[in-house]
């Protein structure tokens, strides 16, 4: 089976996020005075071939921890969706 994985990578709380801060500073000029707490991150989508959802999750989490996020400053969140088997 093929599973679609989405991994969101964000800076850990407490780690300065100059990108998010810069976006937030620009918001009042656009009329978004009520928006606060902007944090920038990134998102990845990939497909994992595995027999079970649990196996796919394990592999996807391994990939997220070993490569997609730097655990020193970032944390990752994984979402898994079963994909149609004919996607090739």
């Amino acid at each position: 089976m093929r599973f679609v994985a989405r991994v969101e990578v964000q800076l850990r709380p407490g780690i300065a996020d100059p990108e998010g801060a810069t976006i937030e500073r620009a918001l009042p000029a656009l009329g978004f005075d009520e928006v606060h707490g902007v944090r920038a991150g990134r998102s990845f989508r990939f497909e994992v071939e595995a027999d079970t959802e649990a196996a796919a999750r394990t592999r996807a989490e391994e990939l997220a921890h070993r490569l997609l996020a730097n655990p020193v400053i970032e944390e990752s969140h994984l979402e898994l969706v079963a994909a149609t088997s004919e996607v090739r």
């Binding site: 780690i15 300065a16 100059p18 990108e19 810069t22 730097n70 020193v72 400053i73």
Partner: peptide, 17 residues
Amino acid sequence: LTEAGLLPGALQKNRRL
């Protein structure tokens, strides 16, 4: 070297980008 784990910590975007 930090990514490889040979040195601790990480290097982040500069202050004020």
